[in-house]
Simulated scan of single mutants.
Amino acid sequence: MISQGLLIGLIKGTGVRVTEKQFPDLHKVIVKQCKALEIRNVPKTYIIESAILNAFATRFAGSNYMILFSELAELILSEDTEKDVVDFVVAHELGHIKRNHITRRLLVYPSMFVPFLPQAYSRACEYTCDSIGCALSPTGAVQGLKMLAAGKKLSKKLNVKAYSEQTQRDEAGFWTWFSEKLSTHPHLSKRITVEMLKADFVATASGKTTYFEEKEKPKTKVSTKESIDDIKKALKPDDFKSDDHDKYLPKG
């Protein structure tokens, strides 16, 4: 509790609070996503200086907090970044709050003493939040993860299929497998799934790129063709038996 309190105090004292007056565009996205996920209390969001592409959600003294590292905030808020990517990143972090992952970690604290189990639980939480992000922004999921993997500029030239197969074939091995077992996050190359590619293709083809009514910036022909090619090259029909991402959204 003391270490968590010190962390929150440091964030409040040095971070930049996102409000209607401070980064209003990002604040609107957060409020919009909270409404879609039926999160009644909008979490306090801060941007802190860091050269790492990362973000996290936490909870202290009954309040939820969302922290965006400046490098990631700059990436997703740049003028040439598609808005659906912002929707995905914000929805992913809000997913931790919606699914009470922070509180549940306290309830499963005894598992911390079981080798590999806490990391496995954390990775499962990340997959869940990826699904939540994909449900709210199907076209932002693939592009958002591509940006996390290769940055804003290189992500536009990233071959998704080759990257997804990287750790399954070319870079597979004991150390690749073992490093993930010790990590709280799945390898990024595994997080871009066939389900996401299918959702991206369907959303782009239908013109509904987000969960919300307003139409976002359409995908380019190159990225759309890439999604089509990935789907056509599936090994078998079972590859497309995907989870229904909408199950993570409020009913009605």
Rank of each mutant, 00 (worst) to 15 (best):
Q4N: 08
G5N: 11
G5K: 13
L6S: 08
L7R: 13
I8Y: 01
I8F: 03
K12W: 01
K12Y: 04
V16F: 02
R17D: 02
K21S: 11
K21G: 06
P24Q: 06
P24Y: 02
P24T: 02
L26W: 03
H27S: 12
K28N: 12
K28R: 14
K28Y: 00
V29T: 08
V29A: 04
I30Y: 01
K32D: 05
E38H: 15
V42P: 00
V42K: 06
T45P: 03
I47H: 05
I48Y: 00
E49R: 15
E49M: 08
E49D: 13
L53R: 13
A55R: 06
R59V: 05
F60V: 12
F60W: 14
G62V: 10
G62D: 02
N64W: 03
Y65E: 07
I67H: 01
I67W: 01
F69E: 07
S70G: 09
S70N: 06
E71N: 13
L75A: 11
I76S: 00
L77M: 14
E79M: 11
D80M: 04
T81M: 10
K83I: 13
V85H: 05
D87T: 09
F88I: 07
F88E: 03
V89M: 10
E93Y: 05
L94D: 07
G95Q: 07
H96G: 00
H96S: 08
K98F: 03
R104E: 11
V108P: 01
S111D: 10
S111W: 14
M112K: 15
V114G: 08
V114N: 07
V114L: 15
V114Q: 05
P115Q: 07
A120N: 08
Y121R: 14
S122W: 09
C125G: 09
G133W: 00
G133A: 09
C134N: 10
A135E: 04
T139W: 03
A141Y: 00
Q143G: 08
G144M: 02
L145T: 01
K146L: 06
M147H: 02
A149N: 01
A150C: 08
G151N: 04
G151E: 04
K153R: 14
S155C: 04
K156S: 00
L158K: 00
N159H: 10
V160Y: 01
V160K: 01
S164H: 11
Q166M: 15
Q168C: 09
R169M: 14
R169E: 12
D170K: 15
G173P: 04
G173N: 03
F178T: 02
E180S: 03
L182A: 02
S183H: 09
S183F: 04
T184C: 05
P186S: 08
S189I: 03
T193M: 02
V194M: 14
K198G: 07
A203T: 04
T210E: 06
F212W: 08
E214W: 00
E216W: 05
E216S: 15
K217F: 07
P218N: 10
K221A: 15
V222H: 03
S223C: 10
S223D: 09
T224K: 09
K225M: 13
I228T: 12
I228D: 12
A234Y: 09
A234I: 15
L235D: 13
K236H: 12
K236Q: 12
D239T: 14
F240T: 13
K241A: 07
S242I: 09
H245L: 12
P250C: 05
